[in-house]
Amino acid sequence: MVEIPEHLLLRSAEAKAKALGIPVEQVLAEMRGEAPPVAPAAPPPSAPPSDPAPTAPTATTESPAAPVAETPASPSPPAPTPPAPETTTVSVETPPTEPLTAPSSPPPPASENGERATQVTLRPVAPPEEIPEGVRPQRLLTVVKAKAIQQVKATPTDKVNTWPHLMIAEFSALMVVTAVLIVISVILQAPLLELANFNATPNPSKAPWYFLGLQELLSYYDPQIAGVIIPTITGLLGFMAIPYVDRNPSTKPSDRKFAIMLFTLFLTGSATLTLIGTLFRGPGFNFTYPWADGIWFDDLKDWVHFE
C-alpha cells in the first residue's frame, strides 16, 4: 500500500466531503481507518444468505436517498449488505463510533433504520460553493506512486570505490615488484663484457633472449622465412588481426577451445624455441647440454653456474 502524503489525503478528503456533503473530519477518519470505511469494504454478496446474523433479514434496506446515503457502510461481519452499488447502499448496523448515528441506544433494527434514513435525508446538502472566474474545479481522482522519469537501461553492476580498494592492490603490486627488482639488482650484476671488438666474433653470437626463439628458427629455415616472414606476417600482422578473425562473441573458455588451443600452441612453441636457443645452443650454434657444457648465453654469464 502506498503511503499517501498528508496534504493529498486532506485534499482528497475535502473533495469527497464536498461532494457528499458531509464533514471533512468524518471522511478523514474513514480514510485513516479510524471510522468504518464506505461500502466497497462491505462483505461480499454471498455473505447474507449464508450468514445467520441476528439482525440480518430485517436489517437491510435499500435507501433511495441517493448520494448522501453512501456514508457509513458497516464493515462489521454480521452486516449483510446486499451487493448494491455503493452510493445506494446504507447499512443499518452502524457501529457505535459512527458519528452520524445520533441516539444510538439499542432500538429495534427497523426503527433505527428509519431514524437513520430520516437523519440522512434531513442533513442539508451543502450548497455548491461559488467558483471564482477562470478557475476550473478539480478533484483528486487518485494518487499514483511516482516513478523515475529516466529509464535506466544498464543493469547495475557490483562496483567498489577505486580509492581505496583498487589503489591499495595496485600500490602493493608496485611495491612488491620494486622490492624484487632492487633485490635482484643488488645481487646480480648486469653483464658488461670486454670492449666491443669487430675483429673478435664471439662463438656463439646470440641475440637478446626475446629474439632467441627467432634465432633458433633461423637455424631451421631460410632466413627470409624465419627472420622476416614469420615474425612480421604471423607475429605482428597475425596478432593484430586476431580480433578481426576471431568473430566468436563468447568469452567463455569452453566456447573458444580452438582459439585457446592455437594461442597455447604459440606460447609453448615460442617458449620452447627461446629456451632451446638460450640454454641448449653452444659454439657454432650447435646443440649442447647446459649441465654438461655450461650456459652459452652472456646475459646469464655472471650469475648462473652449472659447473
Binding site: A196, P202, S205, Q215
Partner: peptide, 11 residues
C-alpha cells in the same frame, strides 16, 4: 661491449 655489439649484429 662484445655482448651488445654482436647481439645487435645478429638482430
Amino acid at each position: 661491449d662484445q655482448l651488445a655489439l654482436w647481439a645487435v649484429t645478429v638482430g
